[in-house]
Design a protein around this nucleic acid. Sequence first.
DNA 1: CTATGATGTAAACGGTGTCTACATTGTAGG
DNA 2: CCTACAATGTAGACACCGTTTACATCATAG
Lengths: 215, 215
Amino acid sequence: MSNVRSGGTERSYHHGHLREALVDAAVSAARSGGPEAVVLRAATRKAGVSAGAAYRHFADRDDLLRAVALRCLDHMGDLMERRLDEAERLLGPDGAWRQLHVAGRAYVEFAINEPGWFHTAFAIPVEAEPRREGGNRGLFQILVDVLDQLVSTGAITPEARLRAEYVAWSSVHGIATLVTGGSLRDLPPTERDASIDRVVRSVTFQVDNVENLPI
Amino acid sequence: MSNVRSGGTERSYHHGHLREALVDAAVSAARSGGPEAVVLRAATRKAGVSAGAAYRHFADRDDLLRAVALRCLDHMGDLMERRLDEAERLLGPDGAWRQLHVAGRAYVEFAINEPGWFHTAFAIPVEAEPRREGGNRGLFQILVDVLDQLVSTGAITPEARLRAEYVAWSSVHGIATLVTGGSLRDLPPTERDASIDRVVRSVTFQVDNVENLPI
DNA sequence: CTATGATGTAAACGGTGTCTACATTGTAGG
DNA sequence: CCTACAATGTAGACACCGTTTACATCATAG
C-alpha cells in the first residue's frame, strides 16, 4: 500500500490508486480539450500503466467519462456555493432574488472560465443525483433551494414556483452553451457580457410572472 | 457525367456526385446517431468509394461534419418556416407575440423529434451566416424578423428589443438541449411537455420587461 | 487527339477502444 | 506461517478510425 511515494516514480506491480489517477489525468485533459480529450489510453499512459488496466476500474470509455463529468459538476457546484457564500445575505424577498441572480451568474462564470470542464460536465448523462462526494449540494439542489426561498420569503407565489427550476435553468444553461463554443462563441467580450447580464436578469421575470399571457 | 443511373448500381471510375453522396450518408447516420455517427470511412463505404476519395471534397472530418451541420440547420429552419406559415396570421401585437411563441415551439419540436439532427446542428461552430441553400431564412434571421415585428407592431419598446435575440434564444435552446439528452432527458413526457410550454411562454416576460428589477 | 487537372484507388501509418490469456500481488483461512 | 483465491496489472492482438502518399483513371480544353 505504500508504493506511491510522492517524490519517487517507482511503483510496484500494483498501482494503488489507479482509479483516481485515471480520473485525475482525464479531468486534467478535459480542462483544456473538453470531452473529446477524455481518452482512455492517454490516461493510462499518464498513469504509467498499460491500457488494459483501465478496465479493472471502468466498464468502458463512457464509464470513465461519466466519472470525469461528475468531477466537473462538483467543481461547478463548488464555485456556485462559494459565490453564494460571498454574496451578502439580505433577508426577505430581496435577498432571495439576489441569491437566484448570484447562482445564475456563477453558473455562466464557470462555463466561461472553464469551458472544457463545462462541456464535459454535460457531455454524458449522469444518474439523477448520485450522492455528492464533495461538500456542495449539487447544481440542481442549489437551484431548488434558492427557488424555495423565493416562496418562503413571499417573493413569489406557490403557483409561480411550479416548474420554475426548468425555466431558470433553461435560460442560464442556454446562454452558457451558446456563448462557450455555441453559435454566440465569438461575440465581442463586452457584448457577450452584456448579453449574459440581460439574460440572467430576465430570469426574474420568467419566474415571477405566470399569468396574463398576451397569447 | 451520366454514370449514376438510378436503378443500376454500376458506376465508372468517377462517382459524379460524391460530395453530396457523402453528406447524404452522413446526414442519414447523424439522424439516429448524432454527431458521433458522422464518420468519414462509413460514409465513403456507403457511397461505394475508397476512404481517401473523401479528401477530394473535404479537408478533414470536421469539414464533413460542418456540411452535415448545415443540412441539419436547414431542416430546422424549414420546420420553423412551415410552422410559422401554418399559424393563422393575426395582425398587430397579438400576432407578433404569437409568432414568437410559434417559432419557439417549433425549435423545441424539432429538437425532440430529431434529436440526432438537433445535436449535430450545434456540434460544430458554423460560419456566421453562410448563404442559405434552401428556401428558409436561417434560424437566427427568423428570430430577428419575429422580434423586429414585435417592435413594429408596438408590442414592445425599442429598449426591450435590445439583445432580445439572446434572451429568447437562450431559453428555447436551453430547454431543448436539457430535454434531449441533457439532464432533463428522462422527465416523464407529460411533465416534459408542460415544462417546455412553461419555458416558451415565459420568454414573453423576458422580452417584454426590461426595468423594475428587484435587485 | 493529346496534355492536364480533377477525381478515385491502394496501401500504409499511428492512434483509438476493447478483449483475452497470462502474470503478479495482497490477503483471508487453514 | 503458508497457501489458495480474488484483485489488479501486462502483453498482445483485433477491428476500426482519420489521414497521407504515390499512383490510376478519366473528362475536357486547346
